[in-house]
Every structure is written in structure tokens, then in C-alpha cells.
Nucleic acid binder design. Structure first.
Lengths: 143, 143
DNA sequence: GTATGTGCAAATCATTTGCATTCTC
DNA sequence: GAGAATGCAAATGATTTGCACATAC
């Protein structure tokens, strides 16, 4: 948990921006669980803990966390994004049920190789990837 | 172009819904180019051609086209989804520049195999996948 | 000290919905 | 003829913005 804060501090310094207790509070809360989160839910979690953080502050922080590589968009559902934090290099891929929303995370190491060949073929500096596989889980197929 | 309409008619019939000239007009316009599209842009394209189609009709059609497997969400940008149509089984993957938005499509056949192994491992009926790789194109790296 | 960040309330914008009317099957 | 689909206008809900105040560097 220390790590993410340190990474963020370094990121902020490099960008010439300023860190604030609000931002650190939000980041700590994001990394307090390993769950996915969305803005509203994160806001409520903070509220429950009597932290006085406004939603705009969360919305303003998210692009920074994305850019710093600390979180990524996991999927879009119910009209808004759901995010997840990234542990080092380990990007998750998601398998989701279109019916019940059940989500399974898996790793796919072959995508690293794919990134390498895309970088070369198209002359891109690759920063990451997002793979979503969707279908119906066994329970929902039975219905 | 005939094909997509035929597929849609079959889909509608199977679901016990009704087809309408409005729906066919929208579908024809979607498939009139090979470009990505978003709702607003599609609406304007139709308007330019003096087709009297309302936005809600487009919004109401999209879930059906997704379910029928005729289009898929390509990426989310500027606050809304961008869609693309699918030719048969050929799902595209996207390589996008985070700076200028330049998008390159590519195919990755290994994902079919991955779908198979996920289906088995997690007992899912797989309907598709979406892979987005992002980074910076050479032009934007130079800046 | 200055420019950045915060919280609030108001604005924005994509999407959805209620409803009367029209149309498909 | 019954149930769906359409268009319109209004509602919704996530996100953004303007602004006055607070605060990090």
C-alpha cells in the first residue's frame, strides 16, 4: 500500500503538480481492497469512513491515476466505468457474463508478445492493453 | 449489404419482434461505409440524407444489433461509445494512440484458441471478445 | 506568493423514458 | 386488432465546470 502512494508522489512531482491529503486518502481507499470500484461506490466508501471527499475530486484524480499506471478501466457497465488497480505489470483480462455480469479475471501472457510485435509493426510505444471476453456463464446458459 | 439486412430480418423474426423501414434505413446507413460510427454522427449522416430518423430509434436499435452480432462496441471516447460493424466472424482488435486517437485495426487469430480454452476452463458459452492495445504512435512520441 | 486543488452548486451531454400516434404482422 | 415501434419532449444520471476559498510548494 505504501508503494502506490510513493509511485503517485513521484508521478505528481515529475508532472510539476501538487499532492494533497485528499488525493492520498482516495488512493489509500482504492488500494484498501482488491475489488473493482466505480466512482460512486468509492465515494460512498469514503463517506462511510467520514472522509470529506467530494465526487469532483475523485473524478479529477482518475485521469492522473490512469496516466500514472496505477489503475485501469476494467469495463463499462450500468452507464459508467468500473476501474481496477494494477499490481505492477499484471494487467488482468476479463471474462464476463452478458446476462448476470459475473466477471472472472485471468492472465494471458501471450499478449506481451503481441504488444512487442505490434510495437514493431506499427511503430508504437505500447502502454498497455485491455482484453474482454464475453459470453454466458453456465448458470445463465441453463435458463 | 443485402446480407446484413437479411441477418437482421431473421434475428427479428426469431425474437418475435417487428421490422420497420426505420430500422432498415439505419442498418443500411451503418453498413454504407466501413467506418466506425457513434450515435450522434450516424444521426447526422441520416439527417444529411433527409431520412427522418430520431435518435431514440437509433439508441433502441443498437442493443438489437449487438445481440444479433452485427456490430460491436469498438471503444469509448469523448463520453460515448464508438461502434463498428462486424463482417462475419472477423472481430477486429484495435491499437490506439492515447494522444491523437489514431486507431489501427488488426486481427489476432490466437484469440480464438484462447476463447476455446476459457470456455472449457470456466464453463462459459463465449460470444466474442474485445482487445484494445493502447500507447503512443510515432508522431506523438516525437512531440 | 502563486498557482493548483477543493467543495459546492449549476451546467452539460449522452442516454432513457412516458406517452400519444402510427405501423407491422 | 393487438402489440410493437416511432418521434417528441421531458427526465435521468454520470461527469464536468465556474467560482470562491483553502493550501501545497
Amino acid at each position: 500500500m505504501k508503494d502506490e502512494i510513493e509511485i503517485f508522489r513521484g508521478f505528481i512531482r515529475k508532472k510539476g503538480l501538487r499532492n494533497t491529503p485528499e488525493r492520498e486518502t482516495i488512493i489509500k481507499e482504492i488500494f484498501a481492497t482488491s475489488e473493482h470500484f466505480d466512482v460512486d461506490e468509492l465515494y460512498l466508501r469514503l463517506k462511510r469512513k467520514r472522509k470529506k471527499i467530494s465526487k469532483p475530486s475523485i473524478y479529477r484524480l482518475i485521469p492522473l491515476l490512469l496516466e500514472a499506471g496505477l489503475i485501469q478501466e476494467a469495463y463499462f457497465e450500468d452507464g459508467h466505468f468500473h476501474y481496477e488497480h494494477i499490481y505492477g505489470d499484471e494487467l488482468h483480462c476479463h471474462l464476463r457474463c452478458l446476462e448476470c455480469g459475473k466477471t472472472i479475471e485471468f492472465k494471458e501472457k501471450s499478449l506481451k508478445r503481441l504488444e512487442g510485435s505490434l510495437a514493431e509493426e506499427y511503430d508504437f510505444l505500447i502502454k498497455g492493453h485491455k482484453l474482454e471476453v464475453f459470453g454466458y456463464c453456465s448458470k445463465c446458459v441453463k435458463k
